[in-house]
Structure formats: structure tokens, C-alpha cells
Amino acid sequence: MELLQSIADSFNYWIYIILMMIGLYALVAKNNLVKKLIGMSIFQTAIILFYVSIGYKDGATIPILYEHQAHHGHHDAGHGDAEDAHHDVEHAVEEAAKEIHAVAEDHADGHDAHADDHDTLVDSHDAHTSSAIHAEDFANPLVHVLMLTAIVVGVATLGVGLAITQKLYGEFGSIEESEIIEQIRTGK
């Protein structure tokens, strides 16, 4: 039961491991070069799932601040003008960025013993900001941005891989690795 519970709790991470192993298997065991590349793609997708899972928090929403939220946050400070709203948003974003930096890990890896150290860090931030905007209400956007880059890299790798496969097909008339190796061996 405990095992099942722990699997259910970190469902994303189990899926990422399984996907990664499927990809690795295809990379190592498949004979067809295109299938190898598909395996490589699955492998990289697993890492994307892993990163996206890091950014997830229970009950958190997308990291976009609406004007009234930012405004509400500083209501007690006496800002009422529409002109100040913009400044408030900026200030709130800065505060949120500081908090995200501090809490990034204890929401991603809540089981860990060291999370305590950082809770106190966050508390100290809470104490002196009095803002209604807290980093824990928002998913961590940084990892998603990182993954946009990783997706681009993955697409580029796949493109280069397919181009090389095409070149191999032109040269050997086959995309089966064993046949190509056989041709190299006998052709020499």
C-alpha cells in the first residue's frame, strides 16, 4: 500500500523514468536508424516531462499577475491611483521573483528533509513584504522557459539525425544498421 501511495504521489516522475527507459531501449536495441531517432525523441521528451513536473505546485495557477491582484496586494499601503498600479505590478513581480528563487525546491520536492531550512527563509520574506502575492500561488515559470529551449534543441537534433539518415540511405541504400555495417565490411 505504501508503495502504491508513493507511486501515486510522484506519478509524473515514474512516468518520466518509464518513458526514458523506453527511449533508451529503442536507442540501444533497435536496428532501424529511424526507429533509433524516434527512441531519441522519446528520451528527450521524458526529460521535458521531468522539468515541467518540477514547476508544478498543488493548487497553483499560471504565473500571470492581473492588475487587481497586484493592486490588492498593496491596498493597505495606501496606493489608490491608477498611475501607481503599474509601479505596484513591477514591485510585486520583483518580490515574487525573490520568493520563487527561495522556494523553488521545497514545493518541487516536498518530501525532503532539508525543505525546513528553506521554509524559514520563505517565512522571513513573508514577514516583511505583507504582499498578498505569494510565490506558492503560482507555478514556477522558469522551468517551462527552459523547456522551450530544450524542445528547440530536440527538434534540431532530430532534424540533423534525419538528414544524416537520408545521406546514409543515399550512400548505402538501406537504413538498417546491420546491413550498412555489413556493406562496409564486405565493401572494403
Partner: peptide, 12 residues
Amino acid sequence: LLGVGYLYIKTG
């Protein structure tokens, strides 16, 4: 990349 991900989990 995975290693950097794990570092990021702990250190942010």
C-alpha cells in the same frame, strides 16, 4: 540536462 534539473530542484 537531467543532472542540472536535479540541482535546480534542490537549489532553485
